Amino acid sequence: MSNMDIALKDMMTIEGAVGAAVVDYGSGMALGMLGSSKALDLQTAAAGNTEVVRAKLRTIDQLGLKEEIEDILITLTGQYHVIRPLTGRKSKGLFLYLALDRNRANLALARHRLKSIEEELEV
């Protein structure tokens, strides 16, 4: 089992998780996906969230900020979507994407778990 498969499985064990993906924001393609919801098209989510990451990186650059994105949180009425760009040398250009059921998720705990998963993942 690859590190990516392990990371996806770990992401899906987070309370409230409905979908997880590892995405290449150069291409917008999901390299790996795992989901429990038929209603969530992870391929579409991967492509759409690529635009979010690129736009934020562009904005940071335009503002001249010497900052890295730790995570991006999108709060919907029924879900949380958490995007976490990977910072490892080998995994630059990738991000973790996690969709959570807002009624079942603990956001602070989910963000903490995602950080741990990112640290263990070497793609």
Rank of each mutant, 00 (worst) to 15 (best):
A7S: 10
A7G: 05
K9V: 03
K9C: 05
D10E: 15
M12E: 02
I14G: 04
G16Q: 02
A17S: 14
A17T: 06
A20G: 07
A21H: 02
D24G: 02
D24N: 09
G26S: 09
G28P: 09
L34G: 09
S37K: 12
K38I: 09
A47L: 15
A47R: 15
A47C: 13
T50D: 04
E51Y: 14
V52D: 08
R54C: 06
R58M: 04
R58D: 06
D61A: 12
G64K: 11
I69Q: 00
I69N: 00
E70S: 13
T75G: 05
T75H: 06
L76F: 13
L76C: 09
G78D: 14
Y80D: 00
H81W: 10
R84T: 06
G88L: 02
G88N: 03
K92F: 00
G93L: 00
Y97N: 02
L100Q: 06
R102D: 08
R104T: 10
N106K: 13
L107R: 05
L107F: 09
A110D: 07
R113K: 14
R113Q: 14
I117L: 07
I117R: 04
I117P: 01
E118Y: 01
E118H: 06
E119F: 00
E119I: 00
L121H: 02
V123S: 00
